[in-house]
Design a protein around this nucleic acid. Structure first.
Length: 265
DNA sequence: AAGGAGTACAACCGCAGATGC
DNA sequence: GGCATCTGCGGTTGTACTCCT
């Protein structure tokens, strides 16, 4: 009869996570890795459902997450990718290292959508609002998204540039994207093969970064203390409270980075 | 200072696809 | 092939915070 609930509803806590719960979850995952989310709450001593644990970890506790607002370049990339992929937030997030689908979805709904509407661009079709009727006559939104061609790329690029101009006129210099970011976006948008590969399911940047074995030895990991509030708690609890005596490379690398940061290297 | 409106974001819910038996 | 289970995704909701009157 029907689907089994993802967890035993009785005794399962809901709502915001406490620092103590975060600590337990982090401790468990760093020690045992990500496996069988359904079993995680029991094994970690949490009164949460596995789904909630997974969400908390992927959206908030993961050490490679960036925190804070999306940069201009990231925002433009989101707009470009949304024009191609639609509301496939996980696919979009996969192209933005350190960002989660939830974060991007929220940012889209609260910021980008409004900006596009303000500019007279339909956030769904990425067409000018006054052209909506005629564009609907010719093709459905789904068909529109599947049209991977230069015309589309240039239009998206134009929209992005327009958005950028508007942003630059109102935001502080510190918030503005650097010239390098603009060049990056320019080259991304101009590179048809790259944009087409983004459309296809090729190895995402995010997955590479999250792979358990760091491939770029000289690459510095994100500034953990800036990005992960829980690491500040780490300092309060003491590092062994988190069970950091585990063996995976990413953990030891992260600890080295943290140590280097502390020493001001 | 109070409180109502608007905003941002964390978290939940239900569905669909993937996987294993 | 059919069923059960697990995981991931996207939409939606709840709530804390900020701003304005």
């Amino acid at each position: 009869m029907g689907r089994q609930p993802c967890c035993d509803k009785l005794g399962v806590k809901k709502g915001p996570w406490t620092a103590e719960e975060d600590k337990k979850l982090i401790n468990f995952i760093l020690t045992n890795g990500q496996c069988c989310w359904r079993a995680v709450p029991k094994l970690a001593g949490l009164r949460r459902c596995g789904k909630s644990c997974r969400l908390r970890w992927t959206n908030y506790l993961r050490p490679d997450l960036k925190r804070g607002l999306l940069t201009q370049a990231e925002e433009q990339l989101v707009i470009d990718l949304h024009a191609r992929l639609g509301n496939r937030w996980s696919k979009i997030a996969a192209r933005l290292p350190g960002r989660t689908d939830n974060e991007i979805k929220n940012h889209w709904n609260t910021h980008i959508k409004k900006k596009l509407l303000k500019m007279g661009i339909d956030p769904v079709t990425h067409e000018p609002l006054n052209k909506e009727v005629t564009s609907q006559d010719s093709s459905s939104p789904a068909e529109h998204f599947s049209q991977v061609d230069n015309t589309n790329i240039h239009q998206v690029k134009e929209n992005s540039v327009a958005l950028n101009l508007e942003e630059n006129s109102t935001s502080s210099p510190a918030e503005n994207s650097s010239g390098e970011e603009s060049l990056l976006m320019d080259s991304i948008c101009s590179d048809v093969s790259l944009m087409n590969s983004m459309w296809l399911d090729e190895t995402p940047l995010m997955d590479m970064l999250w792979d358990s074995t760091p491939k770029l030895e000289n690459e510095k990991l994100p500034m953990w203390e800036d990005n992960c509030p829980w690491l500040l708690d780490c300092q309060d609890f003491g590092i062994h409270d988190f069970g950091f005596n585990c063996s995976s490379e990413i953990e030891s690398n992260a600890l080295q980075t943290l140590d280097m940061d502390r020493k001001g290297l």
